[in-house]
Each structure stands twice: as C-alpha cells, then as structure tokens.
Design a protein around this nucleic acid. Sequence first.
DNA 1: GTCTATATTGCGATAGAC
DNA 2: GTCTATCGCAATATAGAC
Lengths: 180, 180
Amino acid sequence: MADTPSARDRILDAFEELLAEQSERAATLDAVAARAGVSKGGLLYHFASKDAMVDGVLSRLSAHVDADLDRMRSAPEGPVAYFIRTSVPTDNDLERSIVAVARLAQSADSRARDALSAMQRSWLSILESSVGDPLVARIIMLIGDGMYYNTALLPDTNAVLRSETDMDRVIELVKRLADS
Amino acid sequence: MADTPSARDRILDAFEELLAEQSERAATLDAVAARAGVSKGGLLYHFASKDAMVDGVLSRLSAHVDADLDRMRSAPEGPVAYFIRTSVPTDNDLERSIVAVARLAQSADSRARDALSAMQRSWLSILESSVGDPLVARIIMLIGDGMYYNTALLPDTNAVLRSETDMDRVIELVKRLADS
DNA sequence: GTCTATATTGCGATAGAC
DNA sequence: GTCTATCGCAATATAGAC
C-alpha cells in the first residue's frame, strides 16, 4: 500500500513538495506532472483543474491536523510541551502540509487561509484549556507561529532552537509563564 | 515633496501595496503600472525589469529597518517593550515593506530571504544585549515573528492582541522571563 | 488511465513614435 | 519621460488518439 501509492497520491505528494520546497510559482502543472511521473494530460485526468489539486492538499491538511490534535490532547508531557516541541522544524507530513498550504495562502487563496485559521483556532483552544490564562495561551501560540514562520519563510537561515537542552529550557520558561 | 512623489516612488509604492495587500502573483507589471498611474512602457523606463523593481523595494526595506533599529536602541521603555509593541499589526511604512518583502521571499527570491534574515539578526542582536540570556532573546523574537506571520499570512483573521492592557501584560510577562 | 497535440490567455520585455 | 504596439514564452486547460 505504501509501496505503490496511487497516481492520485503521487500527484498530491509532488504538488505539496514543490510548494513546500520551492514556491507556489514553481508548482506548475508541468512540474507537478514531471515529479509525479505522469504526463500533464494524465494529471488532469485525476484533477480536472489546479483548483481541484488545491482542494486535495487542503483535505490532506485537515486529516493531518485532526490526527495532531488528538496526539496533542493526549500527550504525556501535556499539550503545551507537545505544541512547542512539534513547532520546531522537523520533516514530517504535517509540517510539509502546513508549509504547502501556507504558500497557497500567500497567493491569496481564501480557502487556504481559512484552513490555516481553523487549525490555529483548534490549537489555541487546547492551549487555553491547558494553561487557563487566554493571554498566556496566545503567547505560546505566537512562539509556535514564529517557529513555523521561520521554517516556511527562511529555510536554512533559521537556527531556531539548536539543542534538546534549549528546547527543555524553553518549555520550562513557558510553563513558568502559565503559573504566574 | 510629499505632495508630488516622483514616478519612481509611485511605482515602488504601487508594487509594495500590491504585494502586501494582495499577492506576489497580483503584482504584475500591468497592475503596478495601472496603480501607479503610468503605462507599462513608462514603468519600464524607470525600472528596466521586474528584478530592478525588487531591488527597489529591498533598498527601501533596508532604509526603514535602519531607522527602526535606531528607534529600538533608544526607546525610552527599552528595546524589548519597543520590539513587542511594534510587532503588533499596525499600518506603517516599515510593516508594509516587511510584508511585501516576505511575499517576495515566498517566491523563492534569495535576495529577499537574505534581507529578512539580516533584519532578524539585527533585532536579535539588540534583544540579546538588552536581556542578557540569548534563549530568552530568541523567545521574544519568536513572539514578534509570530505576530508578523499572522499579519502577513492571515490578515483579518488574526486577533493577535486585542487591547492596550493585553499588550502591557505581555510586555510584563516577557520581562519576567528575562529576569529569571 | 494515460498519452500527444493544440488552443488560449496572460506575463515580462522590446521597439520605436511622440 | 511617457506612450502604443507587438514579440516570445510559459502556463492552464481542452481534444482526441491509444
């Protein structure tokens, strides 16, 4: 199953990768088709328009976010630590999906913006339940947003948090905010 | 002087506005020329290529950032409070310039990315001098980045910090981090 | 389901008149 | 310094063969 992804999945993978690794402009039908190993005509059989492809990555994001929210709610270390730890640049499906949708949002795609807003509201809601103080929850969200922003906008350049020790200290500092 | 901006300045204004208010794709030569009140040929007399126009907005950013760094260093409330206060969405030349360049950076323009990186390094350096602890300085930067990110990516949607009271409390909380 | 044309539009840039 | 007209190209999308 994971060995032979369908053409449809390979196309969405290619679209997300080009968006996230390069730019919205680079993610042309030609480039997506080439990376997915199909012709442009083949691509357009599966997705009748570029818009349909956007819908595809948006529903993928939605699925990844739902799974992440579950993990966040039941994280052993608690939602705050989970949120901070998973905001640091890694290389997983959720992050790639978020960066891809962020690029679409930059191109004035209102559906993409709505999807990102909804994701933020969900995170914020869990953080608020966890820390009590809405303003502290918002500050924690902003720290996470800042990390994603640096990942999406300034790949390579950003040495956000270098070590595990740094990460542990950030979580400790942030938790102290919550207890004040 | 402010009454009759030169065609050159009107073109850069129009380019920045289209980038910031709409998207990189919307900022075509046609659209910029129309907004600036010149023809496409007229535009291309002042800027031989779109790339030259990008250079124009990058030097504007550089000038705005230099002025901001001076204000930050000499802010009566201190650099930290100044930085946090000016990270909240407002409507000034610096912010419009940053958002415009952020859009260019999203389009894989390495010069734009370098300019944003340099800006961040300058801010961070002042914050580090001010708070001592490099990790706390980085956290403060991330909060500011988060605010800019929300402004640039999700206009309207983002209710970052609603009131003056919220802002004052954020600054107080952040300063407490610095003193721990 | 996947391919090769091809139609069509929109963009960046050039040429040359005024 | 500013204009109109036009070239060349790249991108989305369609048509129809296999």
